[in-house]
Amino acid sequence: MLAVENLEVSYGDVRALDGVSLEVPEGAIVAIVGANGAGKTTLIRTIAGMLRPEGGRIMLRGDNIAGLPSHRICNLGIGQVAEGRQIFPTLSVLENLEMGAMLPRARGEQAKNLERMLAMFPRLDERKDQAAGTLSGGEQQMLAIGRCLMSKPNLVMFDEPSLGLAPAIVQHVLQTIRDLNREGLTCVLVEQNVAVSLKLASRAYVLENGRVTLSGTGAALLADDRVRQAYLGM
């Protein structure tokens, strides 16, 4: 579905991605693991059109989408649940969700989707008129996921969805991702929690200093000595 080929991205003189290639098959959960500063968020933001690549291609179903502005890419069905959740704190929960459906692809079905989201996340329904900034971290993460799903994406990139959440809520978030995937959503998962994300993933890539150093099925990487040593502390 999505194929990244030799992607190169720099911040000024600093090269953040140095020829990254990876593939996201339809219906898969693809995990990207790596240390802080390895380029995971850069990769996601470049695919989402928030950063401009210097080289390489990003192929979505055979079309190169590299360099398109973010609102065009979102409208092609690539959604993002960004690092730090990035909700709109002074807008109400309901307004946050509505904003997710501003894209032409989703505007017509806004009401229907809104109902679906509130049924899926009952906590959000309870608090729909509250300012989103007053929600707890876990609720904000649910809101970020719900807001993203309002655009009816085919592929969602999750950037550190469990960061800063209590363990019980982390389980809930990961379960949500698994459920969404079962319903047919293709997922890219960037997680600091390497063991969990490798278990979820059908395919995984290890990113180091802007390069893919290892790739394989989630289970294979979980068994790989280098991964166990570097990321699982075994």
Binding site: M50, C74, Q80, A82, P89, T90, L91, M102
Partner: peptide, 17 residues
């Protein structure tokens, strides 16, 4: 509302397109 959203969180506005 979209203008308020932009003012509220610029990155968030980019993220949802």
């Amino acid at each position: 509302k979209a203008i308020r959203a932009c003012a509220d969180n610029y990155t968030g506005a980019l993220v949802i397109g």
